[in-house]
Write a protein that binds this DNA or RNA. Structure first.
Length: 808
DNA sequence: TATAATGCCGCATGG
DNA sequence: CGGCATTATA
């Protein structure tokens, strides 16, 4: 216990209470940078010190990174020997292990099931859509995949899908056959002994709810449960936790509702908001002191997040230095934005900072390329985190597919991938015949291949020989998978199938070399895995596969120069911290994303939380930038500053005032377009998105004043420099109305703009009724300032505003 | 059957 | 623009 006293001396009072309170339900609201991981690890150490066996403690995280960090920190506290026995890992990995153990209770599955990644799922669904003769334009695989995923997150099984509200929605959207695709997909998964990521959760939920004895076994095993990032749990995870914690409810959930950013994959912020209802005897601990960021950053972030209505009240604060104000930077183009950021980083370096002190955060991965280019231009070493995941690379997927088939021969996605790669003359006609046979005899593709001798004269002898040769090759691997360790077997596979030779043939020298390096890296990973594994029973290929199936990236920092600027999405940055953060692309239709429905408060609040996450990654400085124009699919489009910028309290921000107003008088936007010269060229218009060119239109939502109508708009005037209204004098003066009233768009019969006069009462689709205060500019640039009842004064361009004169 | 050429479509966010 | 799937051609 003396050791424990030391531990407590490193904690503040709140943290210490949260650590000591081990019995019963407990909710720890951990603000950004408040020492969340510290509390979790110390709590586990404390439990161990009380005599709770390690194997009785279950700790669930969302990311491998978080799990690894926690493992390491606990090992340091209690030693590796003890820490090894903790049940700690991501939801997906822990549940996958349980499902393998209990596969006997899962109809259709055995313990060797394959875990499908998103690409596999899409491929599988594409096949099903084709086989059901559905129109692949109406039924887009990615869309269907996300519908099915959503159904699974909401625990709607394929057999119950028909008649559900989702099914009704499909019908309204002209996709009544999603139900059949879902059914067929589930059957295929079972037939091929495969599960997707959602199944790992859903099937665990089903396993427990349908097998009380199994559930009880795990309830007894997991006597103390800790859940990290509870605000990101979905319905499935929530239910499983609830079941497992029963009846003692020694459940400690840690999270921050202000950082809930995963609703797109089913996370329900209600889970954390309603914890008190689910567990009335719960204890609440709020960690509100931020040890990471300057006061300026914490205050600015608070000023933003207070705009969200749905949240647990808390006041985070910092006792660090006051710090510099947040800087806002405007550039004419996205390319220049990158250069500006690079220049700023260079001057930080000149002042003695390290590259690794800096991170560039963006909303979408698509932004990474141009930033990377800018870094290269300015000779700044950088690394894109998760640009393309290691395991997504073609050569790795190919090799992994061999492993998948060796472990699970029913895995047809993998089998199809490798059946003729590297080329072995089993072409598409042959494969087609084989799949037809499989269908007719209701067998797996692999089974048919094994029995190809019995197919009479269907195949030429040469073809039969090829097939049998492949079968023999694979069987040889299968036979040794319990004997040879993962590394030696993988090595043998690489040699025998001749994948390196195939790469040499396929690609140029350099590219082939790079791809070979990736293969070698996978081999190295396997070698490390085998060497590090202490349990001699867990060094086999399926053990390694289990590990990598749930990995999305590989750590390669150890050997390389770690002093690099990191580029990543805000989502990827969650949980990390950097001395200097550059948040780029802070524009309407990018951040907040184009995809979010401006009218949906729920979605907008999540975007705001995402911005909050971005801000709170920084320890010392935050620089936010946006570009006035941006290339998308090669087309130039206009952007307006993000509405979130105006939501930051001016007190903590530099540059808010200087932001581009685009108003008629300054001609600022016109200047840019002239200088860029790009606007006058002809672009193409696709799918309702407009680019500069034939319509000289732009899809920006306009400025703060107009953001209610921020979806891409099409304007038909050749002048574009005045397409934005000016920012309101007091950006937040009318905030309350903005978020609280979801006004129904009103039907507007636009009056002749020439009839609009000062003093007149007018109706606007978004802003409702207001009085015309001032009329300015001339002709096409004619603008009016209108005082709206609920939205304050707005400056609108007459030709776009669609105003209806209201008779008094 | 293998490779080159063309065409289409995508940009959320991730385990 | 760039990746991937389908088609054209040898």
């Amino acid at each position: 216990m003396e050791q424990m006293d030391d531990i407590f001396s490193g904690l503040n009072d709140r943290q210490s209470e949260a650590v000591r309170n081990v019995d019963g339900p407990c909710l720890v609201i951990a603000g950004a940078g408040s020492g969340k991981t510290r509390v979790l690890t110390y709590r586990i150490a404390y439990l161990l010190s009380l005599g709770v066996p390690a194997y009785n403690i279950l700790a669930l995280t969302f990311t491998n990174k978080a799990a690894a960090e926690m493992k390491e920190r606990i090992s340091r506290l209690v030693g590796e020997d003890v820490a090894r026995n903790l049940k700690m890992g991501t939801f997906h990995s822990i549940f996958a292990k349980i499902l393998r153990m209990e596969s006997a209770a899962l109809p259709g599955y055995d313990s060797n099931f394959t875990i499908l990644d998103t690409d596999d799922v899409k491929k599988q669904i594409t096949q099903i859509i084709t086989s059901l003769n559905l129109d692949k334009d109406t039924y887009k695989a990615s869309k269907i995949a996300s519908i099915i995923s959503k159904a699974k997150n909401d625990m709607i099984l394929s057999e119950n899908y028909e008649g559900s509200s989702m099914w009704q929605l499909d019908r309204m959207n002209g996709m009544p056959a999603v139900a059949s695709v879902y059914k067929e997909y589930s059957q295929t998964c079972r037939k091929t002994n495969s599960m997707d990521f959602d199944d790992l959760l859903l099937l665990t939920k089903l396993l427990f709810s349908m097998n009380p004895a199994v559930l009880e076994k795990y309830q007894r095993l997991f006597r103390y449960i800790l859940v990290d990032e509870y605000q990101d749990t979905n319905s499935c995870q929530y239910q499983i936790i609830r079941m497992l914690a029963h009846p003692d409810n020694n459940l400690c959930v840690v999270g921050d509702d202000a950082q809930s950013i995963y609703s797109f994959r089913g996370a329900k912020i209600e889970n954390i908001l309603n914890f008190s209802k689910d567990y009335p005897s719960y204890k609440l601990f709020k960690l509100e002191q931020n040890y990471r960021s300057t006061q300026m950053i914490v205050n600015a972030a608070n000023s933003l997040i207070m705009k969200n209505k749905r949240q647990i009240p808390k006041k985070t604060f910092s006792e660090q230095e006051c710090g510099e104000k947040i800087k806002i930077v405007e550039t004419p183009t996205d390319a220049e934005e990158g250069i500006r950021v690079a220049t700023m980083i260079s001057s930080l370096i000149d002042n003695g900072e390290q590259y690794s002190d800096c991170a560039i955060l963006y909303r979408t991965n698509a932004q990474s390329r141009i930033l990377e280019e800018a870094m290269h231009k300015k000779r700044i070493p950088c690394k894109i985190v998760k640009g393309m995941s290691f395991f997504q690379r073609k050569e790795i997927k190919d090799l992994v597919s061999y492993v998948r088939v060796i472990i699970n021969p029913q895995d047809e996605l993998a089998l199809m991938r490798i059946i003729n790669y590297p080329a072995r003359s089993i072409g598409s006609t042959t494969v087609e015949k084989l799949t037809t046979l499989a269908k007719n005899y209701n067998l797996g593709l692999w089974d048919v291949m094994c029995q190809v001798e019995r197919t009479g004269s269907l195949f030429p002898t040469a073809t039969k020989t090829k097939i049998l040769g492949f079968v023999a090759l694979m069987q040889e691997f299968m036979a040794s998978r319990q004997e040879a360790d993962a590394y030696s077997l993988l090595n043998r596979i690489v040699e025998k199938i001749g994948i390196r030779e195939a790469l040499q043939k396929e690609y140029t020298h350099e590219e082939a070399h790079e791809r070979e390096q990736n293969i070698l890296e996978l081999l190295n990973g396997a070698k490390e895995f085998v060497e590090d594994e202490l349990d001699p029973e867990s060094i086999y290929l399926h053990n390694y596969m289990e590990k990598i199936a749930l990995l999305t990236d590989i750590d390669e920092e150890d050997t390389e120069n770690p002093n690099k600027v990191l580029l990543m999405t805000v989502h990827a940055a969650k949980g990390l911290e950097f001395k200097h953060c550059f948040i780029v692309g802070m524009e309407e239709n990018l951040f907040p994303s184009l995809q979010v429905d401006s009218a949906s408060e729920r979605e907008m609040e999540e975007e705001r939380r995402l911005f909050y996450v971005a801000l709170t990654r920084a320890k010392q400085t935050v620089t936010i930038s946006y570009a006035l124009t941006r290339r998308k699919w090669g087309d130039l489009i206009a952007s307006a500053p993000s509405r979130f910028l105006s939501e930051l309290d001016e007190e903590y921000v530099d540059g808010l005032k200087k932001m581009s107003r685009f108003d008629a008088d300054t001609q600022s936007f016109g200047d840019y377009s002239a200088r860029q010269g790009g606007f006058s060229s002809y672009g193409t218009q696709r799918r309702g998105q407009t680019s500069f060119g034939e319509h000289n239109s732009f899809r920006s939502g306009g400025s703060f004043g107009q953001y209610g109508a921020s979806k891409p708009q099409q304007f038909s005037s050749p002048t574009r420099n005045t397409g934005f209204s000016s920012a309101p004098e007091k950006p937040f003066a009318h905030y309350g109305e903005n978020t609280q009233k979801q006004q129904q768009p009103q039907t507007i019969i636009p009056s002749n703009p020439n009839d609009i006069a000062v003093g007149q009462r007018v109706l606007h689709a978004k802003f409702g009724v207001g009085t015309v205060k001032e009329k300015m500019g001339e002709d096409a640039n004619m603008a009016v300032i209108i005082a709206f009842n609920n939205w304050g004064e707005k400056k609108l361009l007459l030709k776009f505003a669609k105003l209806q004169i209201v008779e008094n």
